[in-house]
């Protein structure tokens, strides 16, 4: 009988550091317990994180792919497993399977303008891509980061966004849905910023991540600006349980979001996104 690696077995990692980013969202840095390097991953991929005895959830990788010593995950504490994960202290052990799924088209975007549009927690998987782009900034054209959050308190990675904004070679637009007069920034939905971003619609790659409705309307705004639908990429969320296309939960018509996605070129999913309950 052929020896096969068992796709169901998580690897042990220690939590090196864990902190709250915003009220319901936390980041943790993980290291393999046996001291080896973390597996190579690409921006936009995800891991399955296991909390002993509680369960397993998909979490996108929010760290820099070139950083091989540490695995960084950011997620929201909303379900039983993510809450348990959030409650774990530094030094605790978690199980990790992955990385899985498709990734952002960072390599394909080289030589072109880039529009990164994120909503809410959608900035987490896109942060990897932005870090990658910033690390090789000269290889890209104009780069715009559009980010929408619910309130000022919900702005994820605020310090890093400010750092990006301070750079002369990134156009960063941050907007919130709800604010009072103390907020000195923009208020309104992130889709409104697409038309304001500077890019050549014929030479651009757009990467969009956020709630499905936000992604759909951002894609439509991009199309209105002349961007073709195969230059727009979205990251889909579905119920991913096994992460390897065997459990069936994350099906989106012919796609298994866990292995065919989560990152899809918009033209592949456009007609399905408009239908609902697919």
């Amino acid at each position: 009988m052929i020896e096969r690696t068992d796709p169901w077995i998580p690897e042990s990692y220690h939590i090196v550091k864990t902190w709250r980013e915003i009220p319901d969202t936390f980041t943790m840095e993980l290291k393999p317990t046996d001291g080896r390097e973390i597996p190579r991953f690409a921006s936009g991929q995800f891991n399955m994180l296991y909390v002993f005895g509680v369960g397993e959830i998909p979490v996108s990788i929010s760290g820099d792919p070139s950083q091989r010593g540490i695995l960084t995950h950011t997620t929201r504490a909303v379900g039983a497993v993510s809450r348990a994960l959030c409650d774990l202290k530094e030094g605790a052990v978690v199980g990790v399977r992955g990385p899985y799924g498709s990734h952002w088209p960072v390599a394909e975007a080289m030589g072109k303008d880039v529009v990164i549009a994120a909503g809410g927690l959608g900035l987490a998987p896109l942060r990897s891509a932005v870090r990658e782009i910033v690390a090789a900034r000269e290889r890209f054209g104009k780069v715009s980061v559009l980010y929408g959050a619910r309130t000022v308190e919900d702005i994820l990675f605020r310090r890093e966004l400010e750092g990006w904004r301070a750079r002369f070679d990134l156009d960063v637009y941050v907007t919130v849905d709800h604010a009072d007069a103390a907020w000195r920034g923009s208020v309104g939905v992130v889709t409104r910023f697409v038309a304001r971003a500077a890019f050549n619609p014929e030479q651009v790659v757009a990467m969009v991540c956020g709630p499905e409705v936000m992604m759909r309307y951002t894609a439509r705004e991009l199309e209105k600006c002349g961007v073709v639908d195969d230059a727009i990429y979205l990251s889909m969320e579905r119920n991913m349980k096994c992460a390897v296309g065997l459990c069936g939960h994350c099906q989106f018509q012919q796609f298994f979001v866990c292995k065919d996605g989560p990152v899809f070129a918009y033209h592949r999913v456009k007609s399905l996104l408009a239908k609902g309950e697919i």
Binding site: D6, I9, S12, F52, V93
Partner: peptide, 13 residues
């Protein structure tokens, strides 16, 4: 599918 044990902050699966 698998069984795990936890001892002294280590996990074996």
């Amino acid at each position: 599918l698998w069984e795990a044990t936890r001892t002294d902050g280590e996990m074996t699966i």
